[in-house]
Write a protein that binds this DNA or RNA. Sequence first.
DNA 1: AACTTGCGCAACCGCTCCCGC
DNA 2: GGCGGGAGCGGTTGCGCAAGT
Length: 366
Amino acid sequence: MGRAPCCDKANVKKGPWSPEEDAKLKAYIEQRGTGGNWIALPHKIGLKRCGKSCRLRWLNYLRPNIKHGGFSEEEDNLICNLYISIGSRWSIIAAQLPGRTDNDIKNYWNTRLKKKLLGKRRESQTRRGISASTQEGNEANGMNDNSSLPALSSSALERMQLQMQLQGLHNPFSFYNNPALWPKYHALGEKILQDQYNDFLTMQQGRVSQIQPDHNGTFEDIASPSFASLQENSLNRNHKQEELENSLNGLASSSSSIAIEGRHKSYGRASAFIPNELEQSNMNFHMEAALQPEFSDLLYNKMGGFNGVEEQISELDCLKDMTGTKENMIWWANDFDTKFLSNSWDSSSVFQTQELFLDYPMGYDL
DNA sequence: AACTTGCGCAACCGCTCCCGC
DNA sequence: GGCGGGAGCGGTTGCGCAAGT
């Protein structure tokens, strides 16, 4: 027994909207509004369309003050920064770009911006001329050919790539590199985040010095003393997270519900991942796994092919302007703070702020 | 000129969340 | 507290057009 469909699929029109349909929908909503019920709307207007389709058409195309195409450099910067921080939460990103729709931004990211960013990295990698032997080794392992590209296209991995690129720049104004830019939200939470940030730096530094490509161009974790200490830290942190969760429970009593289960927590529409002990060890394993062949291409760029900062910066021409300016990052952080303080995102914005920090650093912090 | 390929965009689909009953 | 329905979201698909062969 599947879920009942939202409309009679046999009697609804699909495909592109005609100008007549557009005019009908626009005129009706401008005069009377949606009435808070999209499903009933098409019947009232006499459109043979699904309510969801009407909603999408209105939000993405007919709504006043919609901008299409022609993304400015500033908008590119903002999309990139937000994507790295919060991932593919297009509606939140769209909320920061007046006149832009989530669909538009999503399409723009998938078709152009992503290629522009990640593509430039690959171009410059080719330009830099990675040693032929390593190249051959990688290809023999199926790591550097085009077939590996789909695996690199997941949101989390893209964010990881972009974030590592940014980390690699040692940019003092990078949001994650600079705890001073982190918004204040909760004393205990801040302490935990600071711990995680420190662990993250420790791990990165440890990895850089300890992971070397072997003759095949693959990576082997030679020794990982910092990893053991991180595991120990993670257990301590578990205890602290428990405290935080209890605190959050208190905070949440007057807000949206929070289900603390040691899994994805739902704060309104947002989610954050706070792993329990078992999951932490699993994630430790996954972090290890992540450092295996499919990530070698990425790692090699940052570790095996560790060039000077200047070269890395020139490698990332496209990112330099986007993330490298103090003004950009401080503006963004301030703007973020404003949103946070004004609670203007939605009823769960206080938790979304936390999510920004729990969600991303956890990927490394294991 | 005909065909193929790639790209951009609009729209659809399926899922989760929220809220009222 | 459980359930059902609507809203909202992100991922994916498919169509149309332009560029390339």
